[in-house]
């Protein structure tokens, strides 16, 4: 029977790893990611389409939204937490370490939210600091777990995105039907 660690078949895992080492076309394909967001037609309600998935993005009621889903700035925190989690499971599996429980709590602090509302131009409306706390339960020593966590943090696509300045190219066009 195939060896399964953390619900992942090691055979498939290693095959994927080999494929990524060799197949440049595949690698360049997974370098590009797409999303499309549509305004739902009323208030702060949006639907995001990502491949065959769709989900709702909104704003909490104290910001005038219908709270039909998490907000954009909460999704960023989620994305960071999920990315560290993915990296953690990936690196643990690579080392053949079985994880029992894994959870992260994320807290982000905005520099000056009033800029968003057009009520200030002192700071900026983005996050200045994000704290990510991971809780792990596993049959492994502290040192190994620490190594896995550090590898996850260092190799995190979302973490690196946030820590470096990303070039954003905003474009707008008026569409007449």
């Amino acid at each position: 029977m195939a060896t399964v660690v953390n619900g992942i078949k090691l055979e498939d895992f290693n095959a994927l790893h080999e494929e990524l080492k060799r197949n440049a076309e595949f690698v360049s394909k997974i370098h590009k990611w797409n999303a499309r967001i549509r305004w739902a037609g009323s208030g702060f309600n949006f639907t995001s389409y990502v491949r065959n998935h769709k989900f709702t993005i909104s704003e909490p009621s104290d910001i005038g939204g219908a709270d039909s889903g998490p907000s954009a700035h909460e999704l960023i925190l989620t994305a960071l937490g999920a990315c560290y989690s993915t990296g953690f499971i990936y690196n643990a599996t690579k080392r053949n370490i079985q994880i029992k429980n894994f959870e992260v709590a994320i807290e982000g602090e905005i520099d000056d939210i009033l800029v968003f509302f057009g009520l200030s131009d002192k700071g900026h409306p983005g996050y200045k600091k994000i704290v990510v706390k991971a809780y792990v339960e596993a049959d492994a020593d502290e040192k190994t777990i620490k190594e896995i966590w550090e590898a996850a943090v260092k190799g995190s696509p979302v973490g690196n995105t946030l820590q470096r300045g990303v070039e954003i190219v905003p474009q707008v066009s008026l569409v007449r039907k």
């Binding site: 990611w33 967001i37 949006f46 995001s48 993005i57 954009a72 999704l75 960023i76 995105t161 954003i168």
Partner: peptide, 13 residues
Amino acid sequence: PNAVEYVISALGA
């Protein structure tokens, strides 16, 4: 979606 897809979704939203 995966984490990096959520990042661009968040930007779009």
